[in-house]
Write a protein that binds this DNA or RNA. Structure first.
Lengths: 185, 185
DNA sequence: GCTAAACTGGTACGGCTGTACCACTTTTGG
DNA sequence: CCAAAAGTGGTACAGCCGTACCAGTTTAGC
């Protein structure tokens, strides 16, 4: 039987190989953006033959989508832990400490999601997850306008820090303002 | 003499050709993102031979950068006019009315600027320009935190509208909140 | 009018891309 | 034990890419 790129390989070794490939794709994505995620590069990074990528993933788009999803989940977990330890106003330090090219890869795929319905779902999951983290930190419901507005400040300042490399001090100051705003009734 | 991709061609026809190529690049950028801006596609769109692109532009990166800059200036002008006519709270309607793929192209290049110093300068120009427009509308100085925070709301809501295609009603409501916040002392 | 510079456009090269193909080996289930 | 399914890996194909090259033509300056 010719398998149609099994999402869950039947054999143990297959599952391992698939996971290795996905991990390699995530690595390449964080290093060089989604342009760097090619079948050949992924296979080489994983130490597997080229054909392995086409065997376990139906297409490059699917590989990219799964890598994006995995990256988003990892990012949300990291952010959750950081907020628990340092609070919302400590977030600029997280961004400063985080791998810049990794963030770039994430945002690249986020924007690319505007052209791909499959990625769009993952993009929404990212936004919703971040909003939820802010809501928890403020002890307010997810839908509260103060939560949403604070999130917009976080999001834009974050992106500016990554892309334009603005001075972190300015970001910290503005974020403090935003948190103060959100804490008012 | 072998010219090094003249930025300002000496002959009238050359200037016209260069402008035509740049216009074609902008078109393709707005239609299919920066992946669509290839030498061949630009030349074909402009109705010129392939070699014309390499003659007037030193590299694809330069062509892309100039197209980005042109797009940013056009976008700033459009936004300025719209704010003058409809005010800040009318902006969601501008976004809704604007060409969605055009905005996607802009944001794609904005994020890509994180990997390219030349583009980064243009990205900063875009941000600064938008902040300035908000400052003018609020009659506050550019550096005022209220201006910067309102801009963050605009920016994120805009991006979410474009990428995630969230319902415009929600955007309008949040934007009204943000404007109210910014108008408080 | 004539030389040099500016421009034109056809063609070619080397490289990378996604993906298909297929003979082969290993594992699984009855 | 043995057929069928699952997995393996080397290779090939067709297409697009940026860019270089160059013989020819047009224009500008003296």
């Amino acid at each position: 039987m010719i398998p149609g790129a099994p999402n869950a390989p039947a054999q143990e070794r297959g599952r391992l190989r698939r996971a290795t490939l996905l991990g390699a794709a995530v690595e390449l994505l964080t290093e060089g953006g989604f342009a760097a995620v090619t079948h050949r590069a992924v296979a080489q990074r994983a130490g597997l033959p080229l054909a392995a990528t086409t065997y376990y993933f139906a297409s490059r788009d699917q590989l990219l989508a799964e890598a994006f999803a995995q990256l988003v989940e990892a990012e949300l977990a990291t952010t959750r832990d950081w907020i628990a330890d340092h609070g919302l106003t400590g977030l600029p330090d997280l961004i400063a400490a985080a791998d810049r090219t990794r963030q770039l890869g994430l945002w690249e795929l986020y924007v690319h999601a505007g052209r791909d319905p499959v990625l769009r779902q993952i993009a929404r999951r990212w936004t919703d997850g971040c909003v939820h983290l802010v809501a928890q930190a403020l002890r307010l419901p997810d839908g509260d306008p103060r939560v949403r507005l604070l999130y917009t400040a976080l999001s834009t300042l974050w992106l500016e820090l990554i892309v334009e490399q603005r001075p972190p001090a300015e970001t910290r100051e503005l974020l403090a303002h935003a948190v103060e705003n959100a804490s008012r009734p």
